[in-house]
Amino acid sequence: MNDAPELLSVRNLTVDFATAEGLITAVDNVSFDLREGEILALVGESGCGKSATALALLRLIANPPGRIASGSVAFRGQDLLRASEDEIRDIRGNRIAMIFQEPMTSLNPVLTVGRQIGEPLMLHEGLREEALLEKCVKLLESVSIPEPRRRMGGYPHQFSGGMRQRVMIAMGMGCAPDIIIADEPTTALDVTIQAQLLELLRQQVETHRTALMLITHNLGIVARYADRVNVMYAGRIVESAGADDLYERPRHPYTIGLLRSVPRLDQPTAAKLVPIPGQPPDALRMPQGCAFHPRCPFAVARCRAEAPALREVGAGHAIACWVDVDG
C-alpha cells in the first residue's frame, strides 16, 4: 500500500476563524499524505478541526469568518490553495468529491434527487438528456436505491435518512473522483445502515483505486475500515500511524486515553472504561505548550512550556509528544 502513488500532499495547513471574541486557530500546521486506494481516517472529538481540515482542502471554508492562513495542498502536484477559481472548480466534485455529514440538510429540498445527482456529470462531463439519465439511474442502482428510474423524480423529503446519504454518496461517485472526502458520512444513521454505506464506500475504493478520507469520531469505524489514522486534538495531528499499529500500540497519551474510553471487542469484557479527565481546551484560551498537557497523566515540565512537533517513533508511526509513552 505504501508504494502506491501519492495523490494528495498536505503541508502545514493552518485555518483561522475570526469570532467576536478573537481569532481561533481551528487547524494548526497540519501535514499528511494520501495515496491511491488508501483509506485515511481523520479522528478526533467534535471541534478538533477535522471538518475544517476537509473543507480547507477544497477551499470551501466560508470566508468570512474562516481563512486559510498558510500551508499548501498539492493534488497530483498542483497546489489547490494557489490554484485559480476555475482550476479549483474543475477539481471540486470532479477529481475530489465531498460527502457531507448531514444528509437531511445537505441536499437541496426544492430540487429533484435526479437533478442533484446529475449536476456534477452535467458540469464536468457534459452529459445531457438520455446519457445523463442513464448514468444517474446507474448511480442510484449502484447505491441500491430501489426503483431508481422512478425515484429520480422524487424530492429529498421523500427519502429516508439512509437513502439520502446513499444519494449523497452516488452524487460524490458520479464523476469517478480520485479522492472522496467523507465527513462523518454515517453519524446520523442506524448502525446497520452505517455498515452498508461504509461497505459501499470501501467497494468504490477497491474497484476504482479511489482514495478515501474518512472523517469520523467513531473509533469502531476507524478500526474496521481505515488503513491509516491521523488523530487530531485541538487543531493538530497528535498521532499518525497505520490502523493496526495504532490499535495495538497507541503512543500518544491522548490516543491511549481515547482507546481506553471506548469498549473494544478485542479486550476482555472485564476491562474498565476510563474516561479522559477534563475537557478539550477552549479554542480562545489555548494552554501554553502542548494543548493536551492539562489532561495528560504523563505531562512533564517541558509539555507546559513548548508544543511538541510530530516526530517519527517507528516505521510510519509519528506522535507529537515529548514523552514517548509506549502503551
Binding site: L58, L60, A62, R89, D90, I91, R92, G93, N94, A97, M98, F100, S106, L107, N108, E119, P120, L123, H124, M168, M171
Partner: peptide, 8 residues
C-alpha cells in the same frame, strides 16, 4: 455548500 463542492 454541497452545490459549491460540486464545482459550480
Amino acid at each position: 455548500r454541497t452545490a459549491r463542492a460540486k464545482g459550480f
